[in-house]
Structure formats: C-alpha cells, structure tokens
Simulated assay, not measured.
Amino acid sequence: MNTPVWTKPALFGAAGGAALLALVGFAWAGWETADSAEQMATQRAHAEVVAALVPFCVQNAGADPQRVAVLTRMKAAPTYSRAEMLMESGWATMPGDERPDRSLANACLDRLATEF
C-alpha cells in the first residue's frame, strides 16, 4: 500500500495542533478537568451554606445569657484563638451536629467582630 507523501507531515501537524490547543485551553482559556470542577463546586457550595448559616450563629450568640462574658474573653484573647473560643461556646454548632463547624465559626466571628 502506498501512502501519500503529505500523510506524515499532516499527522505531525494535527498532533502538534491538538497539543497546542490543549495547552492554550487549560493554561489560559479556563478549561477545567471534571475533578477540579467538582472540587470548585463543592468549595463554592460549602461557602454558600456557611454564609446562609451565619445569621443562625449570630442568633445563637444573641440568645446566650453569657454572651457579654464570652465576647469580653474573645476580645482579650489572641486573634488565632478566637474561632476556637467561639466553637467552644456552642454558637457555631448546628442542631443535630455533635461538633461545631470551623468555617461557620470563622464567618460568624467576622460578623460578631463589630461587637467587640
């Protein structure tokens, strides 16, 4: 079987073009693999859920009779330990959960920061 002379350069050109297209697409055009798109969607969904639950955390803080004492201790504490203190207060624990959520505690702390 005789193959045309142009076959080899055409195949190399097609392979080079496909590689260049993939490089440009993934590096600059914003293409994503299914796995990284799934991770981004999960992170975005978690952030939205946390944002929706912040008012619940603030309401828990407002209903706590020891709110002033907890906020005073938080104000005196170093910044890195404030989220842990908020978690220990129970304000960032959702009904039915056994443990508080650290992301919710950080977001709630940002909202409560105006109070102390």
Score class of each variant (00 low, 15 high):
residue 69 A to E: 05
residue 48 E to K: 07
residue 1 M to W: 06
residue 115 E to P: 06
residue 88 E to F: 13
residue 73 R to H: 09
residue 75 K to N: 11
residue 68 V to P: 03
residue 6 W to L: 00
residue 103 S to C: 08
residue 16 G to E: 01
residue 81 S to V: 15
residue 111 R to T: 13
residue 51 A to Y: 11
residue 69 A to C: 02
residue 95 P to S: 09
residue 52 A to V: 07
residue 24 V to S: 00
residue 49 V to R: 03
residue 41 A to T: 01
residue 15 A to M: 12
residue 19 A to P: 09
residue 102 R to S: 11
residue 57 C to Y: 10
residue 46 H to M: 11
residue 8 K to N: 08
residue 113 A to H: 12
residue 115 E to R: 10
residue 112 L to V: 10
residue 50 V to N: 05
residue 9 P to Y: 01
residue 51 A to E: 07
residue 11 L to P: 04
residue 20 L to P: 03
residue 99 R to I: 11
residue 18 A to R: 01
residue 99 R to L: 14
residue 25 G to A: 01
residue 46 H to Y: 08
residue 2 N to K: 10
residue 10 A to N: 14
residue 55 P to A: 02
residue 75 K to T: 03
residue 102 R to F: 08
residue 97 D to L: 06
residue 6 W to R: 00
residue 104 L to T: 00
residue 32 E to M: 09
residue 84 E to Q: 15
residue 79 T to H: 07
residue 21 L to A: 00
residue 50 V to Y: 09
residue 61 A to T: 01
residue 10 A to G: 08
residue 1 M to G: 10
residue 97 D to C: 07
residue 108 C to A: 10
residue 3 T to R: 00
residue 6 W to Y: 01
residue 15 A to N: 07
residue 101 D to E: 12
residue 81 S to Y: 13
residue 53 L to H: 02
residue 28 W to N: 01
residue 106 N to V: 14
residue 72 T to V: 11
residue 70 V to C: 04
residue 47 A to L: 10
residue 18 A to K: 00
residue 116 F to K: 05
residue 21 L to H: 00
residue 90 G to C: 06
residue 43 Q to L: 10
residue 57 C to Q: 04
residue 114 T to W: 12
residue 68 V to H: 08
residue 84 E to G: 15
residue 7 T to R: 13
residue 37 A to R: 15
residue 34 A to D: 06
residue 106 N to M: 15
residue 65 P to D: 03
residue 61 A to F: 15
residue 66 Q to I: 04
residue 112 L to Y: 11
residue 1 M to Y: 06
residue 30 G to F: 05
residue 113 A to P: 11
residue 100 P to E: 03
residue 98 E to V: 08
residue 8 K to M: 10
residue 67 R to P: 04
residue 33 T to H: 06
residue 15 A to D: 04
residue 42 T to N: 07
residue 53 L to S: 04
residue 45 A to M: 07
residue 59 Q to E: 14
residue 74 M to V: 03
residue 109 L to E: 01
residue 42 T to R: 12
residue 22 A to D: 01
residue 58 V to C: 07
residue 80 Y to I: 13
residue 59 Q to S: 09
residue 9 P to I: 00
residue 109 L to I: 13
residue 5 V to A: 00
residue 59 Q to L: 14
residue 26 F to A: 00
residue 94 M to L: 14
residue 65 P to S: 04
residue 50 V to F: 11
residue 35 D to E: 11
residue 73 R to F: 06
residue 115 E to G: 06
residue 107 A to V: 09
residue 36 S to R: 15
residue 45 A to Q: 08
